[in-house]
Amino acid sequence: MDMSVINSYIPLYRDALLLTLRIGWQGVFWAFIIGLGCTLIRQLRIPVLRGVVTVYVELLRNTPLLVQLFFLYFALPKIGIRISAEVCGSLGLGLLGGAYMAETFRSGLDNIAPVQEESALSLGMSRYQTLRYVIFPQAASASMAGILANVIFLLKETSVFSVISLMDLMFTAKDLIGMYAKTIECLTLLVMFYLIMLLPVSLLGTVLERRLRFAEFGN
């Protein structure tokens, strides 16, 4: 292992990490918004839109992100829809994540016994209060593990961005290996940078999951 090589590569990897993080978190943000929107549509049982949500969730959950990105980036321009690589990355990640989040939120809500809602209502709480003080805290605690697993999954999935020529960590590693053949150094850095990116999220997940378990009651 050549330390001088590693030192000279670090800035390149750092830039790639920043790009990966930026697009990754944008994707996670959109995933939350889309997931919440879908959950709202499902909970309020809005006709038509409900069907759209079901089709969307099933389509996105049952295809690989790689194929979705190929479609967004290479196929859509052929029918006149041109999206930049970066937008493609965060949009693709957001669409994929939205489908996963919608499922996670739903299973969180499904976990709450109907008696909880009925009891709250019969205690004279309004619909809003029931949602705010009874349903939501329990659903949030029940879905927390799933939400964090989704976030880690999405950040990991960013590793396919190189196919739409985004200079992410994978792209940088592949590029450097191709040019200078310092395979071991490049791969070591690749692993280290993914650890830097994902280990904190994973640890946060463990901590949050423990802290939020207090809300588990009634089942």
Binding site: I152, K156, E157, T158, S159, V160, M170, A173, K174, I177, T183, I184, L187, L190, V191, Y194, L195, L198, L199, S202
Partner: peptide, 23 residues
Amino acid sequence: LEIVRIMPQMVLLFIVYFGTTRV
């Protein structure tokens, strides 16, 4: 389990495919 959870499968693929040849 943690290693598998954190490392993207793509990284593992690169390590096994390109790394083993090298090492």
